[in-house]
């Protein structure tokens, strides 16, 4: 008999590992990727590959040469960041911009805080917002989904439904008139519209959501709290005046709501630890998103909303505690 092992209890473990969780997220993102490739063709492939490769490379380089620690790229978190970053940009974005975005996402968004687990903001979003502010033109010229024949460099570009809506309402057009100019709800549902690569197809995103739930990677709380808040808030606005406010379904299907709610707000590191905290966080994201969309200057606000609420997470964790067993005396 070889030497026996002694360790403190417990002696059995669940087989979930960080790696498994991350790869489950990757699997959940595959349908989205497939639909993007279907609609945007080569561009989607090039953008995703660039983002993934550069994120992995930056993580490896930074860990190995700057922080001098054991590189941990195999845990899959950089892979997730890479794909998410790709999902958040248009598919005709020049390669060098993507590389810059990856550097910011990994270098600034993640490693500067001490790597996985310590970053207050979702790294992919840090990268995206950085790009949006630095390269507003390239970041907001979305290729029209023409199918696989879509070429990467000189794709025909057009505005997103959200952009059309914002502009239209701003110019005083009625919502029903604008609706005629943009894809129908059904088309939006399966992704036939312009937009960032990963946000177009609601059906694929929901598929991913179901997978994540089944694999117990995430719980339903964050996505549902965000979606519910947006629905209720925009629903109220819509009921007040359906001609100057788009309906809730439009808000849910366009832009990054589903992508954000399912894949980005649920990022473990940057979301609250307690269920109560999660509700605050989810409702906050929903409210801020709608505020930006309806009253702000940008047509889209999900990324900002998530980043803003990310900033509140430490505070939420500090003050919102789970209810302790035996806390209330019941004598």
């Amino acid at each position: 008999m070889s030497k026996i092992t002694i360790s403190p209890s417990p002696h059995v473990y669940e087989d979930t590992t960080v790696k498994r969780l991350m790869f489950d997220v990757v699997i959940a993102m595959l349908p989205v990727l497939a639909i993007s490739i279907y609609f945007f063709g080569m561009g989607a492939i090039i953008v995703t590959l660039t983002a993934v490769v550069s994120c992995l490379a930056f993580e490896w380089l930074i860990q190995k040469y700057m922080l001098k620690q054991e590189p941990s790229i195999t845990d899959g978190s950089a892979l997730v960041t890479g794909i998410l970053l790709a999902f958040n940009v248009p598919t005709n974005l020049p390669i060098w911009i993507i590389i810059v975005g990856s550097l910011v996402a990994i270098g600034v968004g993640k490693m500067s805080f001490g790597g996985l687990g310590n970053n207050p903001f979702n790294p992919a979003l840090v990268g995206r917002v950085f790009l949006l502010i630095s390269f507003p033109v390239q970041m907001t010229s979305w290729p029209v989904p023409t199918g696989f024949s879509n070429s990467y460099t000189d794709a025909v570009t057009g505005a997103t439904p959200l952009g059309v809506m914002k502009e239209g309402i701003g110019a005083g057009e009625s919502v029903s008139a604008i609706m005629d100019k943009i894809p129908s709800h059904m088309e939006m549902f399966y992704g036939h519209m312009g937009g960032s690569m990963g946000e177009i197809a609601a059906v694929a995103l929901l598929l991913g959501f179901v997978y994540l739930l089944i694999r117990k990677v995430i719980t339903w709380h964050i996505p549902i709290s965000i979606i519910a808040t947006i629905t209720i808030f925009t629903g109220i606005l819509w009921m007040i005046n359906p001609e100057s406010n788009a309906d809730p379904l439009f808000h849910l299907l366009t832009g990054g709501v589903l992508l954000g709610a399912i894949f980005m707000a649920t990022d473990y590191v940057t979301s609250p630890m307690s269920v109560k905290g999660i509700w605050i966080y989810g409702v906050g994201i929903g409210l801020i998103t709608v505020l930006i969309r309806v009253f702000g200057a940008y047509p889209e606000g999900v990324s900002f909303a998530i980043l803003i609420m990310n900033a509140f997470v430490p505070l939420i964790n500090m003050y919102i505690k789970p209810k302790r067993f035996g806390e209330v005396r019941n004598d």
Binding site: T16, V18, L21, G115, L116, Y268, M273
Partner: peptide
Amino acid sequence: SNCIRCAKCV
């Protein structure tokens, strides 16, 4: 590895 703050323990 690092805590990923997944809140599973909570």
